[in-house]
Amino acid sequence: NKFNKEQQWATYEILNLPNLNEEQRKAFIDSLKDDPSQSANLLAEAKKLNDAQA
């Protein structure tokens, strides 16, 4: 299913963002699990935070 693929991709991407700390990473991944339909939005937020902390 589409959300499952998006969720897996977003999880992979978030795990590989270098500037997030473990707590932030875990929070994003927990949110992905809670609502896979928000995968794209959550990934965008994670990338923004990652860039802000660069």
Rank of each mutant, 00 (worst) to 15 (best):
N1M: 01
N1K: 08
N1H: 05
N1V: 03
N1R: 03
K2G: 15
K2H: 15
K2W: 14
K2P: 13
F3S: 15
F3A: 15
F3T: 15
N4T: 14
N4S: 08
K5R: 02
K5M: 03
K5E: 15
K5D: 15
K5Q: 14
E6H: 04
E6N: 03
Q7R: 02
Q7A: 15
Q7I: 13
Q8V: 07
Q8Y: 07
Q8G: 03
Q8K: 09
W9G: 04
W9Q: 15
W9S: 06
W9R: 14
A10H: 07
A10L: 04
A10F: 06
A10M: 03
A10G: 02
A10Y: 07
T11I: 11
T11S: 13
T11V: 09
Y12I: 08
Y12G: 13
Y12T: 12
Y12D: 14
E13Q: 10
E13H: 10
E13K: 07
E13M: 14
E13F: 05
I14L: 04
I14Q: 01
I14K: 00
I14V: 06
I14E: 01
L15W: 08
L15M: 13
L15R: 05
L15T: 14
L15Y: 04
L15K: 08
L15E: 14
N16T: 07
N16P: 00
N16F: 05
N16Y: 05
L17H: 02
L17N: 01
L17S: 01
L17D: 01
L17A: 02
L17Y: 05
L17G: 00
P18D: 04
P18M: 05
N19W: 12
N19P: 00
N19L: 06
N19D: 09
L20S: 00
L20N: 00
L20H: 00
L20V: 02
L20F: 01
N21V: 05
N21T: 13
N21Q: 14
N21Y: 10
N21E: 08
E22R: 09
E22V: 10
E22A: 09
E22M: 07
E22D: 12
E22K: 14
E23W: 09
E23F: 11
E23L: 11
E23N: 13
E23G: 05
E23V: 12
E23P: 08
Q24E: 03
Q24I: 05
Q24Y: 02
Q24F: 02
Q24S: 04
R25Y: 04
R25I: 06
R25F: 03
K26S: 12
K26M: 08
K26H: 11
K26G: 08
A27G: 07
A27E: 08
A27R: 11
A27V: 12
F28W: 02
F28T: 01
F28E: 00
F28P: 00
F28N: 00
I29P: 00
I29F: 05
I29N: 02
I29A: 04
D30F: 06
D30L: 06
S31Y: 07
S31F: 10
S31V: 10
S31L: 11
S31E: 10
S31K: 13
S31H: 11
L32K: 00
L32D: 00
L32Q: 03
K33Y: 15
K33P: 02
K33V: 15
K33H: 09
K33A: 14
D34L: 14
D34R: 09
D34Y: 11
D35R: 06
D35V: 09
D35Q: 08
D35Y: 14
P36N: 04
P36Y: 03
P36H: 04
S37Y: 08
S37K: 09
S37T: 07
S37G: 08
S37R: 07
Q38E: 08
Q38I: 07
Q38G: 07
Q38K: 09
Q38N: 13
Q38R: 10
Q38S: 09
Q38W: 05
Q38L: 08
S39D: 02
S39N: 05
A40K: 09
A40F: 09
A40L: 14
N41W: 06
N41Q: 12
N41I: 08
N41L: 07
N41Y: 12
L42Y: 11
L42F: 13
L42N: 03
L42H: 08
L42T: 13
L42A: 10
L42I: 13
L43Q: 04
L43V: 14
L43H: 04
A44R: 06
A44W: 08
A44H: 09
A44Y: 12
A44N: 10
E45A: 06
E45P: 00
E45H: 05
E45D: 06
A46Q: 00
A46V: 02
A46K: 00
K47N: 06
K47F: 06
K47G: 03
K47R: 11
K47T: 09
K47W: 06
K47E: 04
K48E: 09
K48W: 13
K48P: 00
K48Q: 12
K48H: 05
L49T: 07
L49I: 11
N50H: 02
N50M: 01
N50Y: 01
N50G: 03
N50Q: 02
N50A: 05
N50V: 01
D51T: 10
D51G: 08
D51F: 13
D51I: 07
D51M: 10
D51S: 12
A52F: 11
A52R: 13
A52L: 11
A52S: 06
A52K: 13
A52W: 12
Q53N: 07
Q53G: 07
Q53W: 07
Q53I: 13
Q53T: 08
Q53Y: 07
A54W: 07
A54M: 06
A54R: 11
A54F: 08
